[in-house]
Design a protein around this nucleic acid. Sequence first.
DNA 1: ACCTGAACACCGTTCAAGT
DNA 2: ACCTGAACACCGTTCAAGT
Lengths: 187, 187
Amino acid sequence: MTTRDKLVQAAATLLDRGGEQAVTLRAVGHAAGLSHNAPYKHFRNRDALLAAVAAADLESLTCTFADIRSSTQSPKDELLAALGSLVTFSRERPARYRLVFSAPTLAQADPDLQAQSAACLGEIMAMVEDCKKAGELPDAPTKSLASLFLATIHGLVTMEANGMLQREKGLPTVEENLEMMASLLSG
Amino acid sequence: MTTRDKLVQAAATLLDRGGEQAVTLRAVGHAAGLSHNAPYKHFRNRDALLAAVAAADLESLTCTFADIRSSTQSPKDELLAALGSLVTFSRERPARYRLVFSAPTLAQADPDLQAQSAACLGEIMAMVEDCKKAGELPDAPTKSLASLFLATIHGLVTMEANGMLQREKGLPTVEENLEMMASLLSG
DNA sequence: ACCTGAACACCGTTCAAGT
DNA sequence: ACCTGAACACCGTTCAAGT
């Protein structure tokens, strides 16, 4: 494990434990057993380190999607499983989820990150394509359906994280919303 | 205009000009013609000031929605106009949009903000209700449809801000996605 | 090539006064 | 009640050395 990887790992752990504000370069360096500015030998600045964490998480998500796609479930179940893994990720690692899907400044500045998120969306598109072939989704453009699915998931988990989807308010959960969308699309 | 309002206004302007990182209490105080810690006489800390900006924007959005709802358009056009105003807000004032719809730490900590966002969602629900009565939306629970619409809009504008929806990639725009969703729901 | 320690400018926050 | 100025601890970043 290279020093660079150790720094990325340390930053990810700090994100999980204390959110983005806990990721100071001093804390990252210390957690990796190095000095407070060792990170500068591997990353241009703090944003570049955060972008590296996001890129690693995106790559991992893309792999998860690829695994799901090579399973034996029906295309629609595979798609739902992939979207479900995004929901899980946002709940278990909210700070890292935000970095990946809701950090415009980071995403705009880092072409590598853009490429990784395009690859991730690509996996979703492949699943949508399979669903359409199996007649499990309406015959709309694949890219449109895929981006709509991803957007809906992202919007729902963000609203959940913001406390806008709460049982006491009679609002449906993320899962219930997804089911409804699926049934509306089926006809 | 009270001093408190001046501080909120100054923070909002700084958000528009330089994003969240530009909102230092020193800059806010200075922009309001006060010292660097005058904000502390009106807000518990920086987060409380940002929450006040978000609450003001939410209230303004809710008013806009109420205006649209009292127009003479068809219910469906009113709903689309309301969602469109959210898209416009996110494009013209991205930092403030993020504060309102994508700042979990802020939202969780401030009950006032929670109440304002519930009121805003309430307006959307009323429009959905009108659409259902006019037969312009399927007969699903109002709360489900409303949260699904809001989530979809939020997801789409976030993806756009992140650079994930780009013409060159053959991906549909926010508007195209909305049209598709509307047509899928209609039939 | 990779790392450290000192240093700088900046920021959130607190505190003791001022009117 | 509202404001100011000094002060503190902390942080991102830079720089001059060290191996």
